[in-house]
């Protein structure tokens, strides 16, 4: 039995439509016109204990609807969700005691209170045993390097500091599943790295299942073993990221610095992407030309100073994937 089981989830919203102008506003008071939006058409997947899943898709694709249903605050129209034997929206209070949730753009701490006071309040809200709380808190404080922040009011923390405190707050009751919604949004580079490192450790050493939604593909690259791409309310892909990359955008890039001005090259299956003085950027399909063969062919004919191969950036892979599935029109 998987830890999280999602079957044939569907959800439709009704959205009030507004006619423009003064007359429309008056008419709107009497009779509203509704438009239906199919946020989820058919979403199924399952997750084993200890997995780290990246959940991606363009805005409006159905990511946040899915997360809301999984966390128990939204009821689907049809389909089945079971998490550790509970139906989240039917047993909300029991369910939410077992999960942790971090929203990147919203705080769950108390703005005017020192971090430690907010933690203590959460202990009481979640009914955490005081002994156990102390041990968990101290461990989280050490892992997230919160020692110096504990006595500061939340409003005085920088965004990066606050995110670390938020993650700590979401874990005080030792949830077995952690939902992270855009945890690195707006953070500076060192904070992003710190958050990623912590999440990885939490997943690997403590076996916490993590479900991560993000627009930052570096989060996905650094963390996710498995990626679900959602678009138009359906699961478009569910596979390890490398498999996704191989399917979508197999090409590799070869960067060559020549001793003289870059020559004109005409090799089968190779395309010049960029030319700048003595440098060339080439794109090739590894299924037609292997990298060693290509490098051998170039170095045999030209004097070369430096040469290296790259994979396309993850953003490019995802953008291409969305294009292929028409997901961007969502």
């Amino acid at each position: 039995m998987p830890q999280i089981l999602v079957q044939d989830l569907a959800k439709t919203y009704r959205v009030a439509e507004r006619a423009p102008g003064m007359l429309g506003a008056v008419r709107g008071l009497v009779r509203r016109r509704w438009r239906t939006v199919e946020a989820l058409k058919n979403v199924s997947f399952s997750l084993e204990r200890g997995e780290l899943l990246g959940f991606i898709g363009p805005n409006g694709a159905g990511k946040s609807t899915t997360i809301k249903i999984l966390s128990g605050i939204l009821r689907p129209d049809s389909g089945r969700v079971e998490i550790e034997g509970l139906v989240p929206y039917a047993d909300r209070i029991k369910h939410v005691a077992r999960i942790g949730v971090v929203f990147g753009q919203r705080t769950q701490l108390w703005w005017d209170l020192p971090v430690i006071d907010g933690f203590d309040l959460l202990r009481d809200i979640y009914r955490v045993d005081p002994q156990r709380y102390k041990a968990t808190r101290d461990e989280l404080v050490a892992m997230l390097r919160l020692e110096k922040l504990l006595d500061q009011p939340v409003r005085q923390l920088s965004l990066g500091q606050r995110m670390r405190a938020e993650i700590g707050a979401a874990l005080l009751h030792e949830p077995s599943i952690l939902f992270l919604d855009e945890p690195t949004i707006g953070l500076d580079a060192p904070s992003k790295l710190a958050v990623r490192e912590f999440v990885k450790k939490l997943n690997q050493e403590h076996g916490v299942t993590v479900l991560l939604t993000t627009h930052d593909m570096h989060d996905i690259e650094a963390l996710a073993q498995r990626v679900i791409v959602i678009g138009h309310g359906r699961v478009l892909a569910d596979s390890p990221f490398e498999a996704l990359r191989a399917d979508v955008l197999a090409e590799r890039r070869l960067f060559v610095d020549f001793a003289q001005d870059a020559p004109a090259l005409d090799l089968p299956g190779v395309e010049v992407r960029n030319r700048d003085g003595r440098s060339l950027e080439l794109a090739f399909d590894p299924r037609i030309t292997s990298a060693p063969a290509l490098i051998a062919a170039i170095t045999a004919r030209h004097a070369v100073e430096d040469i290296h191969v790259e994979q396309p950036a993850i953003e490019e892979v995802i953008a291409r994937f969305y294009d292929l599935h028409g997901a961007n029109e969502a």
Binding site: K68, S71, G72, I73, R92, I93, K94, V96, A97, I99, V101, F103, R106, Q108, I125, Y126, R127
Partner: peptide, 11 residues
């Protein structure tokens, strides 16, 4: 949207 936050707590 802060109401979601309340619903995410076991009270």
């Amino acid at each position: 949207g802060a109401f979601d936050r309340l619903l995410l707590r076991p009270r």
